[in-house]
């Protein structure tokens, strides 16, 4: 594999993690437009713990996920009181606040950026992503995922069915943030450099687009969306300056063709189809 291909694969892995981070709360109906802020928390936490506290790569990255989860859990209660477009706006603002804090935080380099000493190779990024993807896929087969879908579909009925709606929403939001933090930690230790500007509006927007384009009703949607968004611009490289224009046009066409995302019915795996048919 060429260095270019490996590099692309790492970007894909980080984007898939970001897409999962958006997908989890979205499956309960919460649009998190500030996901880059949680990635920044994970990236800076992992970088700082490695640089200043001498933590190993694994511990530092895991702590990055944990730090983002803590921030999410702390803000979840006030922020999840808002709904719909207001929740999106609140998370958007939160992402901006977090980025602005890091941009001015001297101990981690402020606007000059923050070099990271600990390093992880592409294999570590890819393996961690595979592990997280396996866990998210497994989670999508549980009642937890069913509850999130029920809440998105009809929160009043979910409540009457005995579901702790608020707690489940907080759990989905926090879990998404943890994955975002993890991806931030991987980013920091793989590229050995963090700067607040990277975790801006564009990163949040793109990450949300992976999920919206891929489909929000199945866990395969974010994977597909992230792959599409990462690989298509690369394939369009030959068209040089026009590639983003062509790409944007493709996105519009895709949304017109599949307004609910590329995947809408969930992926029917061969053995699942058989199981469904066996059901009397």
């Amino acid at each position: 594999m060429t260095a270019y291909q490996t590099g692309l694969l790492v970007i894909l892995a980080l984007n898939v993690l970001g897409a999962f981070a958006v997908y989890l709360p979205l499956s309960a109906g919460q649009l998190n437009l500030g996901i880059a802020g949680f990635m920044a928390v994970g990236a800076y936490a992992a970088a700082w713990l490695g640089n200043e506290q001498g933590w190993g790569a694994t511990a530092a990255i895991a702590a990055g996920g944990g730090a983002a989860a803590l921030v999410a859990c702390a803000v979840a209660v006030p922020i999840l009181r808002t709904h719909g477009i207001y929740l999106a706006l609140a998370t958007f603002a939160l992402g901006q606040v977090i980025t602005a804090v890091f941009l001015n935080l001297e101990p981690v380099g402020a606007a000059a950026g923050y070099p990271v000493t600990e390093h992880i190779g592409p294999a570590a990024v890819l393996l961690t992503t595979l592990g997280v993807a396996a866990l998210v896929l497994l989670l999508s087969c549980t009642r937890f995922a069913l509850c999130l879908t029920a809440i998105r579909s009809d929160a009043v009925v979910a409540d009457l069915m005995g579901m702790p709606v608020r707690a489940l929403k907080v759990a989905a939001f926090t879990l998404g943030a943890a994955i975002a933090g993890l991806s931030g930690g991987l980013y920091a230790l793989h590229y050995n450099y963090v700067e607040a500007q990277h975790f801006g509006v564009m990163l949040s927007t793109y990450t949300v687009l992976y999920v919206l384009l891929g489909g929000t009703r199945s866990v395969w949607g974010p994977i597909l969306g992230a792959a599409f968004f990462t690989l298509i611009p690369e394939l369009l490289r030959a068209s040089a300056g026009w590639r983003y224009a062509i790409f944007a046009l493709l996105v519009i066409l895709f949304m017109a063709w599949r307004p609910a995302g590329l995947l809408t019915g969930g992926l029917r795996l061969p053995w699942r189809r058989r199981a469904a048919e066996e059901t009397p």
Binding site: L138, L139, C141, T142, R143, F144, L146, C147, A150, V157, A158, M161, G162, M163, P164
Partner: peptide, 17 residues
């Protein structure tokens, strides 16, 4: 979903049914 109240424990919630 209708069963939830009898299956809301952590183990039931996380069993990949």
């Amino acid at each position: 979903v209708g069963q939830h109240v009898r299956a809301g424990g952590l183990i039931d919630l996380l069993t990949p049914y």
